[in-house]
Computed example of a mutant assay.
Amino acid sequence: MNSTAMNLIEHALLTYTEGTAMQAEEDGGRFQQQQDEFVESARSCAVRTLCEDAGNLDWQYTVVGLPEHIEEARALLAPGRLEYLRYRVDCTDEDRTSVGFELVRPCLACGHDQVTQVSSLFHLGRLLAESAAEHTDAGEDDPQDSASPLAGIHGLQARASRVTGLARHLAAQHPDAALVVQFAHVTGHQDGEGRAELRLRAASVDAAADVARTLGAHLVTDIYSTIGTYVFQRGDTTTVVDGIEVQLSAHTQLSEEEADAWRAEQLPTTDAEGGENK
């Protein structure tokens, strides 16, 4: 094969490689723009239907676990609560598109979500009042049982059910996070009070950050080095959801390039006079 043919082959391959990389970058930019526009549509709908505060919630775009013809953005009502608002567009075909603005109330006891179309701020308040009343009616603490010799075990089943339901809810909502239950603990005390704990580990720090947002929490991250050449990023958070203390953690090994950059940042710097700054 002569040099001219070889140059042509190399030129063609280089052009193809650069072209596909540029196309992927352009596609990624367009997809991000579409996501941003969809989230803005969700915010606008929230403001029109409810109030300005609803538009200021932390709206997140998601397609996880949804059919291809459905897009969704959701926002937690408040940290430590599972209820969330969702803006959903169902494009079953080109001629029919339905838009829904709904309140989703996950039930940790039965494992099913209660979904209700929300029409106004008054309507949302009524739904939340009904949920609070239902939660009180089904509460685990009965004042009449506080003096019972068995007060320490009253409510254990309810707490255990909530812990199980929360773990299943998060695993179903974040399948890519590959959540692992490291520890689950439920206690009951003589006065009828008790506590519930759930410790989870995610497959990566990025996945843990997504789960943390669902919990209304912020993942705290740092980077550390172990024996040898390995460098890891670690993420941790602790929050309370429906009376359950949830601890979430994850570790991600940095690439060689990322590890080298991190090590370079750890080296002492020198000032203009040649002295060391640590």
Results as ranks from 00 to 15, higher is better:
Ala138His: 11
Ile223Leu: 06
Ala54Asn: 04
Thr270Ile: 09
His169Leu: 15
Tyr224Ala: 12
Gly235Pro: 05
Asn277Trp: 07
Ile244Phe: 04
Ala12Trp: 12
Pro79Trp: 06
Ile9Asn: 05
His112Gln: 14
Gly243Gln: 08
Ala12Val: 10
Arg234Gly: 04
Gln117Val: 13
Ala196Lys: 02
Glu265Gly: 12
Glu265Thr: 13
Ile244Trp: 02
Arg162Lys: 15
Leu121Gln: 15
Ala177Arg: 07
Ser119Met: 12
Asp271His: 05
Pro106Ser: 09
Asp142Glu: 10
Arg199Ala: 13
Glu140Thr: 01
Val211Gly: 06
Trp59Gln: 02
Pro268Glu: 08
Pro175Thr: 02
Trp59Ala: 06
His154Trp: 00
Ala202Trp: 05
Thr49Met: 09
Gln34Leu: 13
Thr20Ala: 03
Gln182Ser: 07
Pro268Ile: 07
Arg105Met: 11
Val104Trp: 06
Thr239Trp: 09
Arg195Asn: 13
Val104Gln: 08
Leu77Cys: 08
Ala264Gln: 13
Gly228Thr: 10
Ala172Asn: 14
Ala54Arg: 00
Ser161Ile: 01
Ala178Asn: 12
Leu254His: 10
Val180Phe: 07
Thr269Cys: 07
Gly29Thr: 04
Ala42Asn: 07
Leu124Thr: 03
Gly111Arg: 05
Ala212Cys: 08
Ala203Asn: 04
Glu273Leu: 09
Leu13Arg: 14
Gln23Ser: 11
Ala209Ile: 02
Gln157His: 09
Gly155Ala: 02
Tyr61Leu: 09
Ser119Asp: 08
Gln190Asn: 05
Ala158Pro: 02
Asp95Phe: 11
His135Phe: 03
Arg213His: 12
Ala5Arg: 13
Ala133Leu: 14
Tyr224Ser: 14
Gln157Ser: 14
Phe31Asp: 13
Leu198Asn: 03
Pro106Cys: 08
Glu276His: 02
Thr62Ser: 15
Val231Met: 05
His169Pro: 01
Gln33Ser: 14
